[in-house]
Design a protein around this nucleic acid. Structure first.
Length: 154
DNA sequence: GCCAACGTTGGC
DNA sequence: GCCAACGTTGGC
């Protein structure tokens, strides 16, 4: 299958692109997602080697700060089974897991933060869920055209 | 199955 | 800190 492209949001005060770069093997399980649309994409569609825009939300300058890649196939999110974890979900049964995740691996930081404000100005990106009003999806697909265009804004 | 209340996301 | 937009929950 052709390589696919994605965008994943993270709050940098929780987990930033620098945190990802600093991780052992520069890899991190993308746990804690509790939204069905986002889960479905991670569980069913994201494949090893797919590229990801790493997006910082809820911060001074929200925008794309780096590139990562999907490190392997999806698997059940262990934090859903842990009563001590803030993302614990008693309704997720290990025999029938409700939540899934993928591991994400650092590729590089973008040359600069590409701010949401600039992404919004570009008609080429008007179809991205990211720039649409009220969208709260934390994992979303990016078309090859959008991917290429955003890279040209670096 | 409807829908009001509530909680969360996330830009500003 | 405000608040609009959503998703989820739970009473009926």
């Amino acid at each position: 299958m052709a390589k696919q492209y994605w965008l994943m949001k993270s709050e940098p005060n929780e987990f930033s692109i620098d945190d990802l770069e600093a991780r052992p093997q520069q890899k991190e399980p993308w746990d804690g997602v509790r939204n069905y649309q986002a889960r479905n994409m991670m569980r069913d569609q994201m494949k090893k080697g797919d590229r990801i825009f790493f997006y910082h939300s809820n911060c001074d300058v929200p925008g794309i700060t780096g590139i990562a890649e999907v490190a392997g196939e999806s698997y059940p999110d262990p934090t859903a089974f842990d009563p001590d974890d803030s993302h614990y979900d008693p309704k997720s049964d290990p025999d029938e897991p409700r939540w899934y995740l993928v591991d994400v691996k650092f590729v590089r930081k973008t040359k600069r933060t590409i701010p949401l404000a600039e992404l919004k100005e570009r008609p080429e990106l008007a179809e991205m869920p990211l720039v649409r009003r009220g969208n709260r999806l934390s994992v979303m697909p990016v078309t090859p055209q959008q991917w290429k265009f955003i890279l040209s804004m670096e």
